[in-house]
Nucleic acid binder design. Sequence first.
DNA 1: ACTAAGATAGTTTTT
DNA 2: CTATCTTAGT
Length: 728
Amino acid sequence: MQYLESLNPPQREAVETTEGPLLVLAGAGTGKTRVLTTRLAHILSLRKATPHQIMAVTFTNKAASEMRERVSSLLGGLPVEGWWLGTFHALCVKMLRRHAKLVGLESNFTIIDTDDQVRLIKQLMEAENLDTKKWNPKMVASLISDYKDKAKKPSELNANDVGGLCDGKLITLYRQYQSRLRVVNACDFGDLLLHMITIFKDPENKQILDQYRNQFQYILVDEYQDTNVAQYLWLRLLAMREDGRASNICCVGDDDQSIYGWRGAEVGNILRFEQDFPGAKIIKLEQNYRSTKNILAAASHVIAENESRLGKTLWAEAEEGEKLIVKGLWDGAAEARFVGEEIESLHSKKHSLNDIAILVRAGFQTREFEERFMALSIPYKVIGGLRFYERAEIRDALAYFRVTAQPNDDLALERIINTPKRGLGASTIQMLQHTARASQISLYEAIRTVTQTDELRPKVKETLIELVDKFDFWRDQMSKIHHCELAKMILDESGYVDMWKQDKAPDSPGRLENLKELVSAMEEFESFSQFLEHVSLVMENQQKDHAEMVTIMTLHGAKGLEFPIVFLPGWEEGLFPSQRSMDETGLKGLEEERRLAYVGITRARERLYISHAANRMVYGKWVNAMPSRFLAALPDEVVDVQNEVFGRSSHWDSSGQNNHRVSAGADPLPNIVRPTTNDAGDTLAVGARIFHDKFGYGKILHIDGNKIDISFEKAGRKRVLKNFIKKA
DNA sequence: ACTAAGATAGTTTTT
DNA sequence: CTATCTTAGT
């Protein structure tokens, strides 16, 4: 049991407390994953349970596979087989395939994604004559998902819950959506949990719930702070015994890192743990093994401003380390330039680019850095963005596969019914959908029915018969030929590959490549349906690259990761904390933003740069921004403030204590920013976009009497007289 | 039925 | 600003 030796006392206690409910509050960098995996290995090596009797729930597939590897390596490299390890959704699918009949589904049901969801809802709204401009189908879809996250079925909602949404038809829509899903034998992500909860709650199915309760002797849940109500209820159903005692459930999480409230996560779940699971023990992991003292101090001071937290105090034996660099810059471009230069200098000092990460609040912020890095030839990778399975050609191909495997999959059929173009237009499709809805049958069945009549033009009828015949043929081949061969056959015979071959767009060769990659990815799976299941649950692309690169990603994407050097750009009011978060959920939103800041800071091991720009282009308009309030929380003694912005903002000044934080080199006096007016009457201010007859468009950098310094888009930096320019 | 020009809206994201 | 959707025209 040498694996216990390397743990600190609370870590060891968390591993050895195997019986009864346990909450492990693990601060950032305190060895959370290590405790989880060691605990699992411990239970297995003491033979307290067989793998089959263990359930381990993670939030991502990536976390699940990491856990699989780490546990087996702790046990001497032997793979652990037969345990229930996976995401909430993956575990629910496994269960639901067994009991699908109980909620009116066939066990080969399809799992639809957000895109399909929205399209289906839009159709239903149009059928109800709802104005899809007034009520955005996307919004309606997310409302329904929210109800599902809260484990609320249509029957459990009343008019008070939905108000006047969708002209009071929201509950009706939700109900129709569910019944339509049943007809097409499909589930959305929320349903996976909700259906299982429905099954578990029904006294008729008591023996099913009992069977699982008996089976899972040990339950482990990672990232508990990110669970939503439905996930919580599902867990509780499995983890509570009939006599009201909790079984051996161990939840690991950090309330300070709860950053998914906007998609239904309830911090309350972790805050309420002791009440929910009577007799629960709570162990706090507070020793940080990741960051320097300075970085930790910064993180602690930021998060300390939050009201609702359980309260942990991180400490470290590490060195103080370098001070954090807080840099104020003129605009987003200057910020990108600064980061680029700093990275070049770090790289020349033998820091690997792999050690460097840029963590942004929102996806669009990556662009400025990408442009700059391309200009400087700094290799970089953007994590996130559109994923492999989200590309149009991949989704189309998958839609073909889905209809082959499960003809009632309307959403998939609609997607490709006229791709490639077959002359099946909106009117034909509408007629088919109408028939399908009216007779409560799937689109595929509707096509079969309608093509037996003369309601359609002969040409259209012919095309439809040909199409369904092809699908029938492919379905027949499923049991006869290898699934990769079948995939190639489908893509070929459907004309889909030809469609891209004939497309002259510059990206079509790449799309054909992607299709090839898709087919080769199928090799790893045993069957067509197994592959489809994998794809619907695992949307991430697992391509590994060996080259040295800087990582650019969102703060959300960075949770659970660490880097020696971290850049946190865009710390400005409105951007971070995000205005929208604060507008939508007020203090709750602000606190979540602050946790996000905490997550960002604690990703850094050795060096941390935080930057903010005074001016930023937002949706094509220049806006000036104040430094983020989170900066004011950083203790003076751990930061080195370098402000390149001449006029310091009122917020920065108003925080009083920060007034002395201007680096020695800055000389703000000669650079007072004062707008001027030209003879044409245009107000000319620094940062304004202007036009010059000879040099074209540009931006005002500096005003010096009637002479103005301008950065022209084409001509570069020039000094011109104010009367030669006008406002753009 | 298809294409091209206008309108519109626009975090964070996994499953 | 730009990606996406809608509408009008052929």
